[in-house]
Design a protein around this nucleic acid. Sequence first.
DNA 1: ATCCAGATTA
DNA 2: TAATCAGGAT
Length: 286
Amino acid sequence: MSLFAADFSQSYEKNGLSQEMIQIFQQIIWDYYNSHPREFPWRVTRNPYHIFISEWMLQQTQTSSVVPKYKEFISKLPTFSDLANTSMDEVVKLWQGLGYNRRAIWMKSAAESIVREYNGTLPKDPDHLEKIKGIGHATAREMVTFAYNIPTVFIETNIRRVFLHLFFHNKNQVKDTEILSLVGQTVDITNPREWYYALMDYGVMLKKTLQPDPNRRSYHYKKQPKFEGSNRELRGKILRLKITNPEITNITISQKLKSPLEKINELVTKMEEEGFFEKSLKTTSE
DNA sequence: ATCCAGATTA
DNA sequence: TAATCAGGAT
């Protein structure tokens, strides 16, 4: 199986990208997708707002975690205006459980600017979207391609894996710029939306199949710091505290806390010892 | 332990 | 470039 990948990569390294290679590559991806497509609610809709929400949630978050949150969110806040007009506290509450909470904050403010500056319509130009805080190169283009079926060129973790495996089989420290060039040359512009679904699904299959993960050969690969004992963990606890006990809201958390952090840490530890979080979590999860 | 349909900031 | 990000799944 990976014998083919080695050959394929060697051919690319030796002769560059021929039309024939592009066709073979596209055939592999489409063949797999036609028999093993993953199904998600955000793949069925064409509502740009729904795509917008899903892309924010899918940043660094597993698809299976996003599904229920996505459904709940678009059900309670069905339009850009609804999101723009809902309080930040309420939006963060709806977000709870997804993590990387600042996405929720930026997402709401993005909705406000789309209502204000784009008449409530998701822009079709990735460069416009990328100017919004929290929307980077990949998310901007995913939104445009998935909402409007417009061909763009982007890379994310699953796509990166596909190209590392098939085009850079025995190369280390591969840079994204090099991969992006290939993504652009091989994208199927007859149906870019489905093409990228297929590409990502193939990448997920490779992750389940290959050991070690080819992404470790990326120049940009890095291990994540521990969550346990981090400020992130602490902030999460305080968020739950604020949500479950509004009367304790005097504790405001600045984004850059240093010395207050220790005080809050003491407080949280004390409350943990008293079993505060267990009690409050039970009362809110019902 | 490591990653997840990343992005920002220093 | 490296560190961080109001989590959770595998």
